[in-house]
Computed example of a mutant assay.
Amino acid sequence: MTEQPTEQPRHVPVLLDRILDLFGPAVSGRPAVLVDATLGLGGHADALLTAFPELTLVGLDRDPHALDLSRDRLSRHGDRAHFVHTVYDEIPDALSGLGLSRVDGVLFDLGVSSMQLDVAERGFAYSRDSPLDMRMDPTTGPTAADVLNSYSAADLIRVLRDYGEERFASRIVKAVVAARDREPFTTSGRLVELLYEAVPAATRRTGGHPAKRTFQALRIEVNAELDVLRRAIPAALAALRVGGRIVVESYQSLEDRIVKRALADLAKSTTPEGLPVELPGHGPRVRLLTRGAEQADEHEIERNPRAQSVRLRAAERIREAS
């Protein structure tokens, strides 16, 4: 029998009013389709379906438990909500399966969900001892324990440096390799203890929790988050009709950097420099709707601490690809 989570997950949507404002011009007052590519517990989706009565929403999530919970939450909207168990870079296949080709909006709320953080059994949080899992889809793929116990030292250093921006990666990995030779890692508590010992005391006093960067790096590696995101943003933009909008909420710099570059590239003309006129089919394909990345204000952060690190970017498709 599968053990049920011991805690009830909670979810407070981040920058909800701003998201409703951004999607309004693309979906209000007419039948429209919006993809929530990271459905989670359905907080944003519920608000969008309520605010726009003619909207149909396609909710994607790689976590089957999240889909079950959001299906219950959104049941009051009837057949206006559709649910697909998939990773969000598979947007074209998900839409094709529903007989759709173009949509009016795509929302990404990136990173680990409230449910995954709040339910101890998932192993995402370093504040409690639990199995070292960290899979967003717990039905498939290697766990964080598998990564710690099987990767070479060089690969572990790469993961911590590239995905956690951890400056003590070599020191941490040396300790991990010595510890796993004695006994394989299975729980988060043992890893946290090791990190407290491996990270210098001066850094612990000023640099936040010593496990934060390592846990982020392991989670990104286990779920291939950045590789998926690099494929997902172009796929989402390709699915937008002219006038459709994309909104992306990121929670760490690696994600935001990918989103920023993808949108900025499409917002530029590809006409060769020096030509006096814009060549047909070479103009920008999107119009940026935010100046840089927008952040939550102090009032929202006080109500919802998880909003502190959010960076929101949005764009509108203004022409088809050549």
Rank of each mutant, 00 (worst) to 15 (best):
G141N: 13
V84P: 07
L117W: 12
G283T: 05
L254G: 04
R80I: 09
L226G: 01
E193C: 13
I233Q: 13
Y251C: 08
R241W: 02
E278G: 04
F52I: 13
E294A: 09
A154Q: 08
G24R: 15
Q252I: 00
R205C: 01
T214V: 15
F52T: 10
R190T: 14
D61L: 12
K260W: 03
E121F: 06
G292R: 08
L240Q: 10
I172E: 04
D79T: 14
D181L: 08
V259D: 08
S28A: 12
R303K: 10
H65V: 07
V177F: 11
L156K: 12
E166P: 09
R122D: 01
V159D: 11
T50I: 02
G59M: 15
Q8A: 02
T56Y: 07
A45L: 12
K268F: 07
V310L: 01
L41I: 00
R213N: 07
L57R: 10
G99D: 01
T143H: 08
A239M: 10
R319T: 06
I246P: 06
V147T: 13
G29H: 00
R71D: 07
E300R: 04
V147Y: 04
A51D: 07
G29T: 01
S322R: 09
R30C: 02
A145K: 03
R311M: 14
V147R: 04
V27P: 02
T206S: 10
D109I: 09
Q8L: 05
N304F: 08
A94N: 04
E320R: 15
A94C: 11
L191P: 11
L148G: 10
E197V: 00
G208I: 01
T206H: 09
L218E: 02
R219N: 14
P234I: 11
L60V: 15
V177D: 05
Q252S: 02
V247T: 14
R257T: 02
V199R: 12
F168M: 09
E300I: 04
D129F: 05
A267Q: 03
L237M: 12
E320G: 07
R190Q: 11
R205I: 04
G164K: 06
Y163P: 10
G105L: 14
V33K: 01
E183H: 09
R205M: 07
V310K: 02
E225A: 12
V106F: 06
A169D: 10
S114F: 02
E300A: 09
R241H: 06
P272F: 03
G78D: 11
V84K: 07
N223W: 11
R190P: 12
H282T: 02
